[in-house]
């Protein structure tokens, strides 16, 4: 049944779509990178280099070759699993990404958890109380979330919760003295410290992540609560809700089981998209909190014409989007019998 021709065809189709998506993604990023008026060779040799050293660097980087040949070389390296070497860090891009991505993953995941556990209930409450004060409160909170510059919010958060109250750890993923104490297994410090059984480091990492995750999570909360509200309003006006109420089902069940159950499918898409956005890395949050994540890495690469780093990062972001799309497809089937 599972290996039916229809199923195989759909798997092949999905894989072909993914391959085309990735190659297209790389091609566009590559072209943008090459037409940008930033000179990667100059990034490496610096302002004061002589023409001779500059030309040698151009040659060593293959920049003297026609564009299509450069792209061909790059793609064939990628297929061999070689993402090239970063100009900025002098290390293989794959190694860099393995180092920076877990930092972003950790932050984005906790931020999204915040987004779900606060955003969904807030959206439901707002929908149920449409036009009354709880709805207004959620609306104002959401509006704040949308419009507050993350940079400012991060700095104020640091000032209050780290500087004045001392409730949370400062910038960075850990106090510097804890750096490299637990073995790096997953790169996610919260998990690695648990694996090593070192609860002091776990606590320290938690105290450092809580604030940036809350700041990022606030944006998720704003987005998810607004979307939940509108999905819920649509469901609450449906006839089956009226029927359920007439049948005497408790209001709690009507709202939290029947209505919310039916908004799960679009809600999963919304959450997946918001999660994917956070996984791209938030440059400003990462800058304020000195959080060495993917966003910071890609931006630094872009500004220095470190195209290997940018392309490598783009692949990961592309992978995240494709992966989360597949995951939300799977989840649809789980939560919605009609999709099976």
């Amino acid at each position: 049944m599972l290996l039916s021709p229809r199923f195989l065809r759909s798997v092949l189709k999905t894989m072909a779509t993914i391959a085309v998506t990735f190659i297209g993604l790389l091609f566009i990023t590559f072209i943008i990178g090459r037409v940008m008026p930033i000179d990667p060779a100059l990034s490496v040799v610096g302002d004061k280099a002589s023409e001779e050293i500059y030309q040698a660097a151009r040659k060593a980087m293959g920049l003297d070759q026609p564009l299509y040949i450069q792209f061909f070389y790059y793609i064939s390296d990628v297929f061999r699993g070689d993402l090239g070497t970063s100009l900025l860090t002098a290390r293989p891009v794959a190694e860099d990404i393995i180092r920076v991505f877990p930092a972003t993953l950790e932050l984005a995941t906790i931020a999204t958890i915040f987004g779900i556990i606060f955003g969904v209930p807030m959206g439901v409450v707002a929908a149920v109380n449409k036009g009354r004060w709880p709805d207004q409160v959620v609306r104002v909170l959401g509006l704040f979330g949308y419009s507050m510059p993350v940079f400012w919010l991060g700095l104020i958060g640091l000032l209050v919760f780290y500087g004045v109250l001392g409730w949370v750890g400062g910038p960075g993923r850990l106090d510097i003295f804890f750096e490299d104490v637990v073995p790096n297994i997953t790169g996610v410090i919260l998990i690695d410290s648990l694996i090593a059984g070192d609860f002091e480091i776990f606590g320290n990492a938690l105290s450092h992540i809580i604030l940036p995750a809350a700041v990022l999570g606030y944006y998720s909360i704003a987005y998810i609560s607004r979307m939940t509200r509108s999905f819920m309003l649509e469901q609450l006006s449906q006839e089956y809700i009226t029927t359920a109420r007439v049948k005497g089902i408790s209001e709690f069940q009507v709202i939290w089981r029947h209505a919310l159950g039916n908004v799960m499918v679009p809600l999963i898409t919304v959450i997946a998209l918001s999660y994917a956005q956070l996984l791209e890395g938030s440059v400003l949050t990462e800058t304020v909190f000195a959080w060495p994540g993917l966003g910071f890495y890609i931006t630094a690469g872009l500004l220095s014409a470190d195209m290997n780093a940018v392309l490598g990062g783009t692949l990961v972001v592309g992978g995240v989007f494709v992966g989360l799309n597949l995951l939300s497809d799977l989840l649809y089937r789980l939560v919605d019998p009609r999709a099976r």
């Binding site: 700095l155 001392g166 400062g170 304020v288």
Partner: peptide, 15 residues
């Protein structure tokens, strides 16, 4: 420590 932001450096120093 690489701390790009001045305000962040100041907070860390004062703490």
């Amino acid at each position: 420590r690489h701390i790009p932001e001045s305000a962040t450096q100041r907070l860390l120093l004062e703490k």
